[in-house]
Every structure is written in structure tokens, then in C-alpha cells.
Design a protein around this nucleic acid. Sequence first.
RNA 1: GCUGUGGUGGUGUAGGGGUUAGCACGAGGGAUUGUGGUUCCCUCAGCCCGGGUUCAAUUCCCGGCCACGGCCCCA
Length: 444
Amino acid sequence: MVQRPRGTRDFGPLESRRRRLLEQVLDNEAVRAGFDRVQTPLFESLDLFTAKSGPGVIGQLYAFEDKGGRPLTLRPELTAPVMRMIAEEMRAEAKPLRLAYHGACFRYEEFKTGRYREFYQYGIEVVGASGPLVDAEVIALAVRMLHATGLKGWTLRIGHVGVLRDVLAGLGLSDVAPEGGEAPISSAMRLLDKGDVNSLQALFAAQGLDAAGLDLLHALGEASGGREALASARPLLKAHGLSLLALDALVETVEALDLLAPAPPALEVDLRVARGLDYYTGMVFEVHVPELGGEGQVLGGGTYNLLHLFGLEDLDPSCGFGLGFDRVLLALEHQAAAEGRTEVLPGESGPSLRLAVVPFRVPAASVLTLVAAVRNAGVVVDLELRGRAIGKSFAWADGLGASHVLVVGPRDLEAGTGNLKRLSDGSQVDVALTASDVLAALNN
RNA sequence: GCUGUGGUGGUGUAGGGGUUAGCACGAGGGAUUGUGGUUCCCUCAGCCCGGGUUCAAUUCCCGGCCACGGCCCCA
């Protein structure tokens, strides 16, 4: 039998419903914060992603050539496509842009729980404005979204790449890249991100710097923790005569965040948060949940410079985040299971009013007008399509989750009525075969 | 890329070198030609794939594939 490709998933009725609900919950929050949904193609030019992330990404891409020999790839993420879209057709729009998106992305890598080759990302970007207030708006939206999903026990970690850059520069590392190489600061950021202390020491030595500078980094790490880290970092930076601009901006962001969103279950300020990627320039943040083990990051974002790649330097930096749709859902499912709940998101079990119509030994055509009319009124109507015997019809209706069954047999048809039975208590009434009468009886 | 565990009807499982491979749920039909969820009967449907050992492999061994974990990575 042909199986679904590795790392992909099918979503049955229940899961599909749950996914649509989650998307709706996220959309509601985005819309309330003034964001509009956009959509980009499933595949893009290969160049788009190598320009953003370097040629190294190709190994993880579903890259291919079309019949014209154009190098293309399934999209591995959505930020770059959205940036491309902005550059290509939204230059004249009023700024700042607040955009939201949701869709499948593809990466060729080992898949496991919370990590698939086809995965879904929900994200937002603010383009054309920057600073502590924008950062706060972006984090606040992330917090409000997670709050709205009902997710519990997550940790928000906030940092600022600028603080780290200032520290590294203050210690004497250059941000100028040598010919064909990487700027020492970038190398250090990457090594810090990996937690590779040995290589970091080697780097300092190679640059002819006193390894004692590493003590400051260590001290910053010690200072990290709750939001008090912001206060304890100040004297440290001052003592080394380092700039306080980035730190002050972060303080402003956190203070604004307090006013814009409910308090997250846990907030950590980590001034050593680094990103191995050069385009992150300012605030960075991420959200973790304990349920998912090694794949516990469910959201990540920050301030970044990417639009210069499209000739829009004046719009840099932007700020946004990507939310791991699948992981959030998984975490919610774990939490629901742990609490013995079957409903992961409220409302996923379907409508409370659901009518099964059974034409019993009469031509189905005699009920079709009614079926359409009741549907027009917004009620879910299932039509019995297999000509089942009467008893089986009830079993079928019950299996569907119908709240009522309307049987129309020869006797009823003669009288111009049908027999409506409420499955919850077995009560029955005869109703005229008009939408208004049926609706009245349903709501009775 | 490294590594651990596992694969028996659609689902969940029992078993085990020679078996009619058992059970439960499920699905379809009937008992029941105008009232369901109970009951009874019937039917459907399975040992992941390939190689090896053996008189004999679903069972043991090797490889592959798939699944579930732990690292590495993660734009």
C-alpha cells in the first residue's frame, strides 16, 4: 500500500476541526491588534532562502527545478516570503505594516514529536516601525495568543542581542568581517548561542584579548533570571564603561509589555540570549513549554534586518515572531490528556444542534426542499443517503452526534408532516414539513 | 549525523519454531419491512518488507522500511 511520505501527517475530522479552531483563536488576537492576514506561494525561488540564511540551508530544503530549469524550493519558513512580498508589491502601503500569516512549511530533516517535514507556522511581522514599543507590541501579541489558546506553564524568555553586541564590542571584538570571513563579533555570538565556551576562549586568544573579558559574560549570565536581571545588569555594564542604550530599550519594552498583555506564567530575562544569525539586531524572545522535551520551543521571534536584501534599507529593522502551530497544539493535547479532558480546545466537538433527516420509504426528493431550507437557516443537516432500515437510521444518526432525527415516511408525507425525535430524551413530536415549523420544534 | 525501543485485522492487543493465530472495539448485513444507543447471529479483515538459519519461520538472526524516544541541528 502506498503510504504517506515520511514526516507528513493526515488530519482526520476531529484534528482538522481542532486545527481550524486554533487558527481562529490566533487570528482573533491578531485581528484585534490590527494585523491582516496575507498569503504567499507554497514554493519560491531558491535564491530567496539562500539570500536570507546562506547556502548552507539547501541541504534542508525541498529544492527542485521546474520544467524551465528554474531553481525553486518549497518554502522552509514564512518570514522571507512575506518580506519578499512586501518588497514586491506593498511598497506603497501605509506603514507600519502589520501582517499575519499561517501555512505549511517544509524542511527535509529528521522528524519526531513536534517536528515534521511538513509543518505549520503561524506568524506575524511588523514592518516599517521599530523600537521598544514595537517590540512590546509584538511580544504582547504572542503572549495574548498563547493566553487565548489556554496553554499553561509556558516560559517567556526575553533578551537583547544589542546588549551582547555592546559587551563584545566593549571587550574589544571587532564587528568588521575580514576578507571572506566572519566578523569576530558574529563568531562570538554564534559560539555563545551554542554554548561553546572552549571555542570562545580560543577566539578571544586569537584576537589577542584578555580571556578575563569572559568573566563579564559569565557575570551577565549569573545576573539573568527574572526581570530583576535588568536591574542587576546595569551596574555590571556601567563598571565596564559599556553602552546602556540596549539595556534601557529592553527595560522600556518589558514595562510596556506589562501593560499590554496578561502576565505570562513565567518570565525570564536572559541577557546572554544570542542568535547565531546576523540579521537579528535587537530584542529577541522565545517561548518554551516543558511538555515537549527537546522540542519545547513553541514560539520565537525578535527584531531583525532583512528588508535591505530587497533594497528597502529604510524599512529595517522589522519585528515579528513565528509560532509553531503543531507544537502548540501538541502541548495543548498533552495538557488536556494530563487533566483528563477530551476537549482540547473549547467548541471542537461540533454544533449542539444537528438534525438528521431520514426519508423512510419515500422518495428522497420529497424532503430535499426542506433540507435545503433548514440548512439555509444555519442548522447542520445530515441527510440519510443509504436507504437504511428505520432502526439502523437511528443508530446512524446517533453515531453522527445528531441532536434530532426527522423521519418522513409514507404516512407522514400523506399528512404533510414528519416525526421529529430528540435523541437526548427520546421525546417525539409531529411537525409540518416547513422550515419554520421544523426550526421552531428544534429550538423548543 | 549519532543512538535506544518497537512493528500481529481499520484500531487496541494475546500468543508463539509446526496453531483453524485468540480477544475487544470497529465496519457491513440479519434477528426487527415506522423508531436508536441494549442483546443475539453472520460477515469483513492481520503476523511490515527482503534475505538467512531450519524438514518447517509470523516466531530465531541480519538488512531495509515504518513508528516512538534521547542527543546534534534548527533560518
